[in-house]
Computed example of a mutant assay.
Amino acid sequence: MHNSLTFTDLLDDAALLSLEHQVHLEEVLGGHSWQVDLQQPRFDFACVTRTITCTAFHLLGSAAPGPGTWLWAWANPSGFPEAVVAASARLRDFGLQYGIQELASAEVPFSALPGAPTEAHLAAGLLTEAAKAVTGRWTSYNGDAGGGTRAAFLVEHPDFRLPPPEPARVMRVIQQALAGLRLTDHRRALHSYAVKRGLGADFSGEQGRITGPGFEAVVEFDGYGRVAGIKAGLSAPHGG
């Protein structure tokens, strides 16, 4: 990471891998309720057939619709345990190091975020995405904290880890991201996903090439650096 790193860069870096983790989380949880005790600390998901107790969780902050601001957990006057807010403090330090005010400021107006969201869950989602790119923890949960306020967490459990990459799933993630996510730099977002997912990534020329077990995808970019088309196909495994 370099000194010209921006908040928008972090969003692109996180976008696709975060999407895949959130889809996987939905598959694991199904219908559920959740409960958190910040003092104990403990975070549980009560699913249809079992309860999943997170092996670790991290409170990032909360988005309140009244003032229209996000408050980082490290700056919350409620005085949460250090273990619960340590990740948010790390993000503050990272923001100070790279001059990213969205991470360094205790309180962030919704209007200062990309797209100027007006809804709390959307604002919380943006800060959470950036947090993932910095912390390397990819599964999040955005819950109702009462009064319209949304609390954002990073949650950890072995069942939340992704399975090995598989051709159809990888292409589905790419297509869903291109159709539904706000990506600023398509090349950066796709390259970041491929590298972080353990796939082959060659974006040195005008095209981008992503390779993995049994598949290859060639990405064409237009004059604005946006994806103009993708040609994907199955390939024979090495040694097959």
Rank of each mutant, 00 (worst) to 15 (best):
W138Y: 03
G212T: 05
P213F: 07
W34G: 13
H58M: 04
E107M: 11
E107Q: 15
A152G: 11
P41Q: 07
A179W: 03
G148D: 11
L19R: 03
L17T: 08
R90P: 04
A179E: 15
A133V: 02
H32R: 11
L178C: 03
R161G: 07
Y141C: 07
P65Q: 02
A104R: 08
Y193M: 09
W70A: 00
L71A: 11
T149F: 08
D202M: 09
R172D: 15
H238V: 13
L25A: 15
P167L: 02
A123P: 08
H191W: 05
L178A: 02
L162Q: 04
S105L: 11
L162A: 10
T118K: 12
P41I: 05
S4Q: 15
H157T: 08
T55N: 05
P158L: 03
L234Q: 13
L181Y: 10
T184W: 12
S78K: 13
L103Y: 04
A131N: 09
G146C: 12
A168P: 04
Y98F: 15
E220D: 15
A189G: 05
S105H: 13
L96G: 12
L162E: 04
R137K: 13
H32M: 11
R42P: 00
D222F: 05
G66S: 12
R169Y: 03
R182K: 14
T211W: 08
L29A: 00
P163T: 08
S78V: 13
E166Q: 13
Q39N: 13
A131Y: 06
I230A: 03
F221N: 00
T149K: 11
A46E: 15
E119K: 12
Q22H: 05
G225W: 11
H121T: 06
I210K: 02
V84R: 00
E206F: 05
A63T: 07
G146V: 13
P158C: 03
F221M: 03
L183S: 00
G240Q: 12
P117S: 09
F203E: 00
G212K: 04
A64S: 15
S140Q: 06
A131D: 03
A86G: 01
E206Y: 06
V195W: 09
H238R: 15
A145H: 14
C54D: 01
L183Q: 04
F110L: 11
P163M: 07
W72K: 03
A236D: 08
G79T: 12
A73H: 05
L16D: 01
F57L: 01
V219W: 03
L11R: 01
L199H: 05
G146T: 10
A123L: 10
K231T: 13
P213R: 13
A152I: 07
E216Y: 03
R197P: 01
G198I: 09
T53V: 15
A56C: 03
A232V: 10
C54G: 00
G208Q: 05
V173T: 14
T6F: 07
